[in-house]
Every structure is written in C-alpha cells, then in structure tokens.
Design a protein around this nucleic acid. Structure first.
Lengths: 332, 332
DNA sequence: AATAGCATTGTTAACGTGTGCATTTCTATG
DNA sequence: CATAGAAATGCACACGTTAACAATGCTATT
C-alpha cells in the first residue's frame, strides 16, 4: 500500500538501514549514495510512517491545547486567539490537538507517548488535578492565563488585577464614586483577579460601595444583560458599571438602551478584554486589552523550546494589560 | 518506563498475547483469566501505546478539522461553533487536530497513516487542490460549508442563497426598494451565494438597483464600517443595506451612528449568521441564522460512520437557514 | 480407555523505522 | 604488497501491540 523504506532499499540496492541514514542526514553515509536514495524516495512520494517513528523514538509530535472547558464561559474570541497564536508558532511541524479538559472521562489517555507537550489554557482551578497529573507524568507543560504555584510549570498570565485597577481608577478620575461591578463566572480565577483590582482601586481612593453594587455574571451576553437590569432597578443607582468582560458589557448596554436610557449619558459602562467588536459598539466601549494571542504565541515558543532542549524552569511571566479609552464612560 | 503488556504478562503468568486478548475483549479467553489480567492492568495504570497500535492496526485515531485559512476572513464565532460541534461528537475517542489548509507547505504529510479522517470547513475554492488530494489518497473526507462537485465527498452546506433571498424579500415586504448589499470576502463561495440570493429576490420583485449599491467587504467589522461609509455618501442613498455577515453589520451600524443618524429610523440594516452578539446590538439585528454547530456535529457523525463502516456516498445535505427578525429594519 | 471436538493459551511473525555493533570496503602509509 | 585506520554498509534486534496458526488442555461421547 504505502511506500516504506524497504521498498526504496530494494530499488536502490541497499539495506533499509542505509535508506534510513540517507533520509535522516546521518554522517555515516556516502554522499553519492545519499543523493541516489533521496531521489528514489522523492520519485516514490515516500512519507515516513509517523506511528513507527513515534514507537521507536518515543515521540508523538502531538501538542495539546487544552481549555478548562469548552462548554460554557469560554468566549469565541478567546478560543480563536489562542488557536491562532499557537498555530502561528508550530505550523505543520506538530499536530495541535484542541480539547476541553472536562471532556476527559479519565486522564490516563494523556501521557508522554501521546503528547510531546501540553499547553493548558486555564480558566479556573477545576483543571488543577489535570495540571498536577500532567506535571507528575513529566509531560512538558505550559500553563497560560492562570498562575499555578503548587506545580513547577512555566506560567504566562495577563495582569488582570492591575488592568481592572487601572480601569476603576480611570472611572474615579472621571468623577465616578458610585461604581458597580458585574463579575465573571464564579470559580474562574480571572473573576477574582478583576474583582480584586476593582476593590483595590476603590480602597485606594477611600470609596466604599454597597453590597448591591456587586452582581454576578457568567461571562456571557445574557448574564450581562440580566445583571445590568438588576442594577438599574436599585433605588440608589450606580453612575458607572465595570463589566468584567466585553460580552457582558454588550449585554449591559443593551439593557440600558431597552429602558430608553443611554450610555454614557445616563450611566457609564466599561468592559474587559477588548474583543474585536468592542470598538464598534454604540458607544465604542472603554475596556482593558488582554493580549491572548501574544500570550499563546509566547507559551507555544517556550513549550517547543522545552521539548527540544529538555530544559524547563518554574517561571511566571506577567503580560501587560492596557487601558483602552473610548466613548462609553462619561466625565461627571 | 511505561507499563507494557509484557510487564502485565509477567505478573499474570501468561503470554503477552493473552494480555492483549483480555484487554481487547476477545472471545478467545477464559473469563476468569480475563478479569485477573484486567485487575493487574488497572493496578499498574496500564495505557496502550497508541503508536504501536496504530502501526499494527493501520489507524491513527486522529481527525483533522481543517479550515481553508485561519489567517483572515474566519470569524471567531465560526471557529468556535465548528470546534465545539465536532468535539461534542468525537469526545476523547479521537484527537481533533485543528489547522488552516494554507499552513501546509506541502500536503504529503496528510495521508491515511496520519489521519483516519478529515473534515474540511471550506470557505473558498482555494482549498480545492487539498480536497482533491485527500480524496485521491482515499482519506475519509467530509466537506462542510461549500458544495463540491468534482470530488465524491459527503457535503453539508447551509442554504445561504435562500437565506439571503428570504431576507431580501423581507426587506421588500417592509417597503424597501433601494436595497444595497455589502458583500463578503472576494473568492469565498458564501459571498457568491449570498449575493445570488439577494439578486434573485430583487429580480423576482422587478426591482433594479444601481451598481453603486454593490459594495465589497471582507467579512470583518472594519470593512463593514468602510463600506457603509461609502453608501452613506451616495447622492441617492439606499433605504436598507444587506450586510453579508453580522460582523460587517456591526461595523455598518457604527458608521451610521457616527454620523448622528440612526438605525432603523434613517436607514435599515440587516446581517447574516446570527452570531451571539447580534441579539444584543442596538438595535437588535435582523439577520439569518446559520446552524454551524449543527452542521459540524452532523459532519462529524457522518465521518465517524464512514471510518467505522468503510462506507461512503456522494451526498449533499442542505441545512436550512432561518430569517430572524429583530429591530434593525424599519417598515416604510 | 480411546477419540473427537471445543476452548484456551502460546509461538511466531508482522507492522515500519532507528540504532548498536559487526563486517566489508576503501585509502593511505611503510 | 601488506597493514592499519577510516569510511561505508549491513545484520540483527528493538520499540509495543495484534493476529494467524499451532499446540495444549479439557470435556463429552462411544
């Protein structure tokens, strides 16, 4: 069926070992023999059987890009940027296998035979047992998006807390004191980091807000809409709302306009993430930019380095988040 | 290092073949021996070496989900729905390898040894040589999104043309006669299908529009914004604009509101795709829903069926698109 | 007890490739 | 020409697993 090195060996009148040497640039072969063999392999469209090589070399040439979950709380933009960033680095040298960690009935299919390395795009601690398992198996591992302390891994994390701090400080500088927050999905570390940044900025400026100014969301449009509806019904309404991602901000703005009120004239709204659509909302959204594609690219480069060099070290790299001021916040 | 069936055989006092039989539910083994072996394998955390199995069984347990390109013209929502739909079907029985076809320097790494099957999410004819190559190699193949005639493949296609027809007809029924179109990325088949549906509806109603009512876009927010800006500068302005996807519609709406005009009071806007954000735009977008996740799920099921049963047939399944009426179109 | 048939288990080889060590060939030197 | 050393090539085995066919053991029947 497929061409094997034995087929080539027959035609070239050499052993299969010599064919292997020729195709792998071994120094132990005569250059003329090598070129002859390569020409025959080319004319026969030979492709190595990667299963056979994997078996002998103890390599799979698979990389995992594993998300905590693909079922809920993962926005389309997030997945897109991660896949794109990693693919740009690995090209066609590796197979990129995309999966939700919660899709595994059991982790034991994940081992060094099947994956040369894994990038975990971590959204919550519910993937912690997976990270510990993978580290224990000594699979080359990079964790993006969430800091992990209990395991010796390379970690690339956007600085959500200071992004949220800076955004809340900006709201304060615009004169706002009644600032509410629509939080992200419960249990996600990004939810906590953004809330912490918000609280820290309030504390810094000696501002206290009522408990009713903390409303839970689920990182999606619907929950943003519902949360804003609740805030708009408060007797003492906030003047500004920090939505912990842009999807929820879009839902929140919709809830405002549905009541015949407008953003930012009646209430200011800010988001987090700077998705592609954010600049095109009406009004254009003030938000914080998180470089997910850049983080994914850096993580993939580091992982490839680890795999090829067998060298790893515990490190945490914080990626700078950036305040993006547009039109959705009014100065009062 | 890893546990092999030979290690288990030693402990169980049987041959490695008997271990293989036990773990693969062969009828050729005593049930008691089988349970004893399974218990030992479990306690040793045995995992098969998939490379070895692949080599013997001539299977890779890899499925490709290949997009024409991941570089431009592919929206985040599109990628997300496709990945999610396929993953929901294959679970952890197969590795899902996600890639852009234009990332391949050469296709010859794609063969039956490395992929049990491939789903091509086709956006344009630029992937035609790949589809022909894969079909020629007799790799089980399913093509989604674009009809392919020259190759015997299973095809799952959303009915873009009748969706666009129905939307344009709706605009006509709301009293619009000056209907412009912001087209999609040049060369994409979806671009042509949507334009054809639009033209067919105009023709059916005996409406003709000037050439200036056909403006090119690139399926992204920016090009929608730019195209609408051009339409708004025409001396004889359209009363309604059909944007060939929702991303461009969002950009178009932004261009309208930037001029102090409003949608739908001054000009009506419609989109295509029904992305998650579309219901939350101000105004909520009238659009056409394409069931990408459903198509991806059906394609994956069919491909698995093909792989397991070795049976395939040329077929084209059209998936119904659906007009979704919201608030962005005014009756005049 | 002998025989036949069935169930169970094991031997051997295969899958395609890479590599350690043995063998052969070639070249340079005395 | 003989010898030593280097270069080139090949043999044999390994990797982990599955399966064809052979061998062995058990049971039922005559």
């Amino acid at each position: 069926m497929s061409v094997t090195i034995k087929d080539i060996a027959k035609l070239a009148g050499v052993s299969h070992t010599t064919v292997s040497r020729a195709l792998n640039d071994s120094p132990l072969i005569n250059p003329e023999t090598k070129e002859r063999i390569k020409a025959i392999a080319g004319s026969m469209n030979y492709t190595p059987n990667y299963s056979a090589r994997s078996l002998v070399l103890d390599r799979s040439y698979n990389l995992g890009l594993f998300f905590t979950t693909l079922h809920t709380g993962t926005s389309a933009g997030f997945l897109y940027e991660a896949v794109k960033g990693v693919n740009d680095v690995i090209k066609d040298d590796y197979n990129l296998i995309v999966r939700g960690i919660d899709d595994y009935k059991s982790f034991h299919k994940v081992n060094r035979k099947n994956f040369d390395g894994i990038i975990v795009m971590s959204q919550s601690e519910s993937d912690q047992s997976f990270i510990e398992y993978a580290s224990d198996k000594e699979i080359p591992l990079v964790v993006l998006n969430r800091p992990v302390e209990s395991v010796q891994v390379m970690n690339f994390v956007p600085d959500d807390q200071s992004g949220a701090y800076r955004l809340t400080e900006y709201l304060v500088q615009q004169g706002h004191r009644k600032i509410a927050i629509i939080e992200g999905k419960k249990g996600f570390k990004s939810t906590q980091a953004r809330r912490d940044g918000y609280r820290e900025a309030l504390r810094k400026h000696g501002i206290s807000v009522p408990e009713s100014f903390y409303v839970s969301g689920n990182y999606d449009l619907e929950s943003g809409h519902a949360a804003m509806s609740r805030l708009l019904e408060l007797p003492d309404r906030p003047t500004a709302v920090f939505c912990c991602n842009d999807d929820m901000a879009l839902g929140a703005v919709k809830a405002v306009t549905e009541r015949g009120m407008s953003v930012p004239e009646d209430i200011s709204v800010a988001g987090f993430d700077d998705h592609l659509f954010s600049a095109f909302m009406s009004p254009a959204l003030t938000t914080v930019r998180r470089p997910i594609e850049e983080i994914s690219r850096a993580g993939a480069e580091k992982l490839l380095n680890f795999i090829e060099k067998k060298h790893s070290e515990k490190s945490v790299v914080l990626f700078r988040t950036e305040l993006v001021v547009r039109d959705s916040v009014k100065s009062i």
